[in-house]
């Protein structure tokens, strides 16, 4: 690279960043605004954070969101690990290409379609076998599992591709049975990828609005749904505060997940 950016490039970079992050910065700044009016700055205050602490509706929604996210991430971890393992380790089985496509399709599927089709599925299932009875946290979590599985599968597959198979062979050679080898060699060594996959699935579930809206029931509004509906009634600075907290949480989780995915340097 040449030493210095030309002025033009520097300006374009600034404009680009401003476009991407300006709104988020202003949201964070105004969450500390003393004024009730979102557009008028009236000095620094943590008033809205305090108020948020006492908002029962938001508490409930946050708990629901967390519960769904933990359930969905755990389900996605189990299914995604199996799928990623199958894709990486069994290079030739009938329908492998189709399986690979189906596992990863949710990554590129429009959320509206995923949400709508799952809604139709749940309704049809309820009519056919009476389960799931109505829609609620269970159906949202199930819907989020489909999305999270794809992410976990991709992360696990990539990790296994970089895995030195001779480690597993060495363990077999030393007398460990295949199941034991998986538990004491493979699993610990891909653990960072599993943790990263779980965190990604958790984050996706936490901030999904579209799919959750389709598959939720009357008493199962997630945090993004509560934020979205309250914004339509006018933006309260409380929502700014909530969004800021949300932002920090997601940023931390994604950073940790990224670190874990890159934690390869050690094993060579």
């Amino acid at each position: 690279m040449t030493g210095r950016l030309s002025l033009f490039l520097a300006v374009m970079l600034a404009v680009g960043y401003a476009f991407l992050y300006g709104p988020i910065v202003s949201l964070v700044v105004y969450s500390f605004n003393a004024s009730r009016l979102v557009t008028v700055w009236a000095g620094f205050s943590t008033h809205w954070y305090v108020e948020l602490l006492h908002n029962q509706a938001i508490h409930d929604a946050a708990l629901i969101s967390l519960e769904i996210a933990v359930t969905a991430a755990t389900g996605a971890l189990l299914l995604g690990t199996l799928a990623g393992y199958a894709l990486q380790r069994y290079r030739r089985f009938r329908g492998r290409a189709l399986f690979s496509l189906l596992v990863t399709a949710p990554l590129v599927m429009p959320e509206v379609i995923t949400g709508l089709s799952l809604l139709l599925l749940f309704v049809a299932l309820e009519q056919a076998i009476g389960w799931p009875a109505g829609r609620g946290m269970l159906t949202i979590a199930a819907a989020h599992v489909t999305l999270g599985t794809a992410y976990v599968a991709v992360v696990v597959e990539a990790r296994l591709a970089a895995f030195d198979r001779s480690l597993e062979e060495a363990a077999l050679d030393l007398g460990a049975r295949p199941a034991k080898v998986f538990l004491v060699i493979t699993l610990p060594l891909i653990a960072p990828a599993l943790a990263a996959g779980w965190l990604l699935a958790f984050t996706l579930s936490l901030d999904d609005l579209v799919i959750a809206s389709f598959t939720s029931g009357p008493s199962s509004s997630t945090l993004p749904m509560v934020i979205f509906s309250s914004v339509r009634l006018g933006v309260s600075p409380q929502i700014n505060a909530l969004a800021t907290l949300f932002l920090v949480t997601v940023a931390v989780l994604v950073t940790v997940a990224g670190r874990l995915m890159n934690a390869r340097a050690q094993d060579s």
Binding site: E169, A170, L172, D173, A176, I185, L189, S268
Partner: peptide
């Protein structure tokens, strides 16, 4: 392999990291 009275030293050593 896990029942053979044979041990192998791998070219890459394959030490468990």
């Amino acid at each position: 392999p896990y029942r053979r009275p044979v041990n192998m030293m791998f070219q890459s050593y394959a030490l468990f990291p």
